[in-house]
């Protein structure tokens, strides 16, 4: 009885990843990022710093942007996870992906998946952000190539387009 209350080293996790139900058994001492990359082979989310400072591992958990490197895997049990692979594919890009290509917002590409997911979380919550709000929305994502202007431009264009569709 007492031992049971101290838990187990192996845990079962069931979650929705990009709309697909996934059930797996894994040691508890892993991150959501390592499950996504190593077990599910979704390598879009990157490990940069591993301590929540660079945002390269950003994914959406129940619609909110999080650093997958700081989510202990069993915490994702029951969650809906969206990675860059769930947004679009080469044949049919997500509007954010299209805009990033168009504006040259991708250089080395390492930050791009996380950057796009932060942008998606922002636009889902605030479809018409100001430039300042866009900068705040991506403030947890480092990019060492672009200087951010092209990224902000790309997000701004998608926001404007969305607004156009609504009116």
């Amino acid at each position: 009885m007492e031992e049971a209350e101290l838990g187990n080293e192996i845990v079962e996790i069931s979650m929705q990843v990009n709309g697909v139900s996934v059930v797996l058994r894994t040691p508890a001492n892993r991150t959501l990022l390592s499950i996504l990359r190593e077990d599910l082979r979704l390598t879009g989310a990157k490990e940069g710093c591993g301590i929540g400072e660079c945002g390269a591992c950003t994914v959406l958990m129940n619609g909110k942007a999080v650093n997958a490197c700081m989510v202990l895997a069993p915490k994702a049990d029951g969650a809906r996870i969206t990675t860059i692979e769930g947004l679009g594919d080469e044949a049919r890009l997500h509007p954010l992906q299209e805009a990033f290509v168009k504006h040259g917002a991708v250089q080395c590409g390492f930050c791009t998946p996380g950057m796009i997911l932060s942008a998606k979380a922002l636009l889902d919550e605030n479809p018409n952000p100001t430039r300042l709000e866009i900068r705040e929305g991506i403030s947890g994502n480092l990019c060492r190539c672009t200087g951010y202007q092209q990224i902000v431009d790309a997000i701004e264009e998608v926001a404007a387009r969305k607004q156009g569709e609504e009116s």
């Binding site: 101290l6 080293e9 845990v11 040691p27 892993r30 991150t31 069993p74």
Partner: peptide
């Protein structure tokens, strides 16, 4: 990336 093993529990 994983850490030294530990047991995990999520009480209700």
């Amino acid at each position: 990336m994983s850490y030294p093993a530990f047991r995990y529990t999520a009480p209700r």
